[in-house]
Design a protein around this nucleic acid. Sequence first.
DNA 1: TTTTTAAATAAACGGCATTTAATAAAACAT
DNA 2: ATGTTTTATTAAATGCCGTTTATTTAAAAA
Lengths: 217, 217
Amino acid sequence: MGRRGEHSKLEIECMALEAAETIIENEGYAGLSARKVASAIGYTVGSLYFVFRNLDELLLRINGRTLDQLYAVLIDAVTDCRFPQQCVFALGAAYVDFATRHPHRWRLIFEHQPRDEDLSTEINKEKVERIYELVEKQLKAIVARPDEEIVLSARALWNGVHGIAAMTLIRNPYDEAAQSAHQLSMNLVSHYLTGLNTTDFSSAITQTAGQALDYPK
Amino acid sequence: MGRRGEHSKLEIECMALEAAETIIENEGYAGLSARKVASAIGYTVGSLYFVFRNLDELLLRINGRTLDQLYAVLIDAVTDCRFPQQCVFALGAAYVDFATRHPHRWRLIFEHQPRDEDLSTEINKEKVERIYELVEKQLKAIVARPDEEIVLSARALWNGVHGIAAMTLIRNPYDEAAQSAHQLSMNLVSHYLTGLNTTDFSSAITQTAGQALDYPK
DNA sequence: TTTTTAAATAAACGGCATTTAATAAAACAT
DNA sequence: ATGTTTTATTAAATGCCGTTTATTTAAAAA
């Protein structure tokens, strides 16, 4: 058949993204296929390639949407917290929560790497950067340090929270994972912030931690 | 052709593992295929299924070997460090180093999850646990805390270091990634250990951090 | 020497992503 | 109203893939 004109290109794109998200949410990336997405929206495979260059592009778009949702959740988490320390805890808890609630989509963000070089990688870079900035803002309110060090610390701490979510989710049943991850996240954030607050000339110590703590060159 | 008897079953298994490792090391998991492994060792696909139940099993075996290598590297890292704090830094540095040197094989450990339920998951569990114990040992030498808390803290800190390696490696060129990861790992370990040392009645604080720091229930 | 056994293969199956050529409906021009 | 051009859509083809099956053949056993 030819043009039905039932849905616009943009509508098909949206339908495909939603269908794919549902499949991934339920069965994970392994359960996804172009054919499955197409039939879920009542079209044939070919039509997908009329809207997306390839599956990689579709996945990239899905990751973009997931990152948007994640950001919204994190924004929400920092709206009802009073003190910056409390806010960092809340951010960690919200992140772990999101990861355990949508494990497949969350993992896809980090595990999918497109084969085409292109600018594909860069596309969602800002959406990730935004999240780091949420943490930086809180750290700035906790300790007075040069911007450079705030950026470094936010990355270190947030990557840490991410690692907890990642390792906990790898092989654990839903509820168990969520509980364990929360406990670990709290432990990490708590000790890290204490350490950050305690260290007076932090930048000096961080840069010379090797000598100070007898770190091997 | 029929039985050549040129290689024993065990020899073929070993050859296949090595060939697969090379492919993954160079091209990543995406570049691996049963046919490619088979032809690399001068056999046809069918022979692989005479030795492994399926590709999942082969990958599981590879991950086991990678975990063994990683453990060896970490053991090595703690042999030439004098003080426990220094040892934790050394462990983190060695981990980050291994991850950046073998990104594809390292990622495979965490990203490959077999479809067969089986006990497959459990197979490498000990090899992961062993690593946490290395960290626990050092933490025990740093602070006097109940075992339960040591275990929790080792997991939190180590997952944190893992997260740094993971996030840094996702999209960064080799050298850049390695340098950045080292810096972040140092920052995280440094502040975390300071915090752990500073907190006197840590178990009390960790368990009641919610109230203490006004953490949202 | 014949029979059995087991190693190894070739070929097949169904599925996949992606590309190609064919088709038919709409939009446009006359 | 008619013919022509677009363009949305599909069916089919290509070349991979993991896995299974039946078949061949060399060695071991009889």
